[in-house]
Design a protein around this nucleic acid. Sequence first.
DNA 1: TTTAGCACTTTCTTATCCAGAGTGCTAAAC
DNA 2: GTTTAGCACTCTGGATAAGAAAGTGCTAAA
Lengths: 361, 361
Amino acid sequence: MLDDRKKKILQAIVEEYIETAEPVSSKSLVEKHGIDYSSATIRNDMAELEKIGLLDKPHTSAGRVPSAQGYRYYVDELLDYNDISVQEIKYIQSQLETKINQIEDLTKIATSTLSEVTHYTSVGIGPNVYSQKIEEVKFILLGSRLLMAVILTEDGLIKETIIKFDEDITQEQVDTLTYLFNNKLKGQPLSQINQPMEEYMHSEMNNILKVVRPVLEQLSKAINEDIPVYMEGANKSFELPEFQSLDIAKNFVNILDADRTKQMIDILDDGENEEEIHVYIGDENVDKALKNFSIITFKHKEKGKDLGTIAIIGPTRMDYSKVISAMKCISKKLGENKICNNKLIGKPENKENSGKDDEDG
Amino acid sequence: MLDDRKKKILQAIVEEYIETAEPVSSKSLVEKHGIDYSSATIRNDMAELEKIGLLDKPHTSAGRVPSAQGYRYYVDELLDYNDISVQEIKYIQSQLETKINQIEDLTKIATSTLSEVTHYTSVGIGPNVYSQKIEEVKFILLGSRLLMAVILTEDGLIKETIIKFDEDITQEQVDTLTYLFNNKLKGQPLSQINQPMEEYMHSEMNNILKVVRPVLEQLSKAINEDIPVYMEGANKSFELPEFQSLDIAKNFVNILDADRTKQMIDILDDGENEEEIHVYIGDENVDKALKNFSIITFKHKEKGKDLGTIAIIGPTRMDYSKVISAMKCISKKLGENKICNNKLIGKPENKENSGKDDEDG
DNA sequence: TTTAGCACTTTCTTATCCAGAGTGCTAAAC
DNA sequence: GTTTAGCACTCTGGATAAGAAAGTGCTAAA
């Protein structure tokens, strides 16, 4: 355990470094942070903090810089969760009050709002489709060879995709399809849409198989590929001093581009069971390419339903306090509004009757 | 007009510079490019080419570098349109043979293929929705307060959006809606969806107005916002030597991020009437931020229908020859396949009967 | 018209020096 | 035992200079 003075020193160094990006000297702590000891005393403490691994030294005659562990200690023990101004709170609220029609839109808005408020790069991904359960599948004939499938999940997610056939299909076939799919798939998770269906269909109705197969193919393709990814403020990161280093800048672009989808989802959707906000500092990230970056994720849930994940990616010298405060503010607002419970899929709701919360059951 | 030797010199300088990114000396032209004159002679020619404005000199004792005008001359007069290997052609063909269900998917695939082949950053945008004419509008009730609208255009574009209501709506209302919209909008361009409709509806049926208004709002929102933008290989650009300059790198990120959508569309959808491939070199670009970059656009058309635009963005020192060759190859393949004419929207087609081309009319 | 030759210019690299900033340690003060 | 003043030591970063390398432009000759 650190004594109070060491805590104060560590906090001051972290905050000063986050603000200035310059190594922090013992003298500046006395002068700017009101730590009422001589610089020599502070130097002794700094040496010890370095020995424990909470501080680093770029070179002998430079000031100190927080290590990854130092940031970790700061985040776990010293953080201020209210580092957000009234204006910012109001801005967040106004943004999230926009009328939205789909959960994905909400994730998108939250992603850009978060980037606006924090001035960091944010990435939002849609909810984990795989585990969601199917409520209904609708098929709409758009042309004689063109079919649209709309999947509604119990969590209120809507996913549509288009299937093109090589031959004409009839409304009758579509009706059979609708019956079959709903009969078999209702209540099943989307991940189940692959093999078992085909087998089932095979035995069930042989003559409709040529219709079923392309539908299945396209459905699983849509489920696997179409997880929406939103990104905001990639350019903001380039204004940060650490992006003077070409290597870091390159690395960053590589992370965001290319397999950003897969990469991110793999990383972000990892810790399922714990708190809604997670902080991964520097080399705590599984991916080695992220060793100079920190990621803060926020999983948007409502009554246990996964509604998407929003993340901030920035240098390890990140304003953790600000980011986490903003996330908590967004989280609170989302919770208050209840804009994204299953009323979104159009179930009747009694606006004025606030007496009873009609849950399913 | 340039004499043959000067042309040869200009071409050699452009190509050498594109390859190496280093100013080209008179000596290297003799040694590496088989121009059979002494370096002094070449120097004289180079001085003249510089006087006409086709070459630049970073400083007195450096070699020469093509100016924007120099690249322009090269592109207009000296370009090789077959700068693409058999393997690359095969790769392009294999990529474009993937089964696709929507025109947008084709644009997406073409965008990534182009980036793969050229190693530059490519951007693809969907067709210009605004001018497309409506073939049919379908409404599907997804829940008691949730309506999906699907717009089919004459060019085979499919655009769907979701409208959420504050009150329950009935199938009857939806039917009326369908009748009204199709009656009024068929054959109209999408841009017409805004005011006139509302006025019409107003006089027509007063009691359905509360349903019509949100539908109109959401439809025009969808039309205005949802022009898909695909980007591929942003990270590839960062490997180029010009991206050592932080300013250029920053600029690039700014162009691609933020208002990339608007910016790009404004720039790319400019020259309507001319050829399908356009080259904008350095300060030829309207946007000043692009003065260090060149953009090559390729408008994908079929029977006069706009099916999207694909662009390559890179430094002015770009392999124009390679990019244009690849685009022509993609263009040819797209034309051969006819995968994206209006058969895509499911109209019957006689595969074996190649006798008559059934156009509408 | 072309070319050999050479002076001139500019960049790039390397070395050296010096000021500035900050630490670590020792010995004294509290 | 804790804190502090003082000072030697270390490392960076900017300025300056010198010399090598690369290329040009121009002149005079082929």
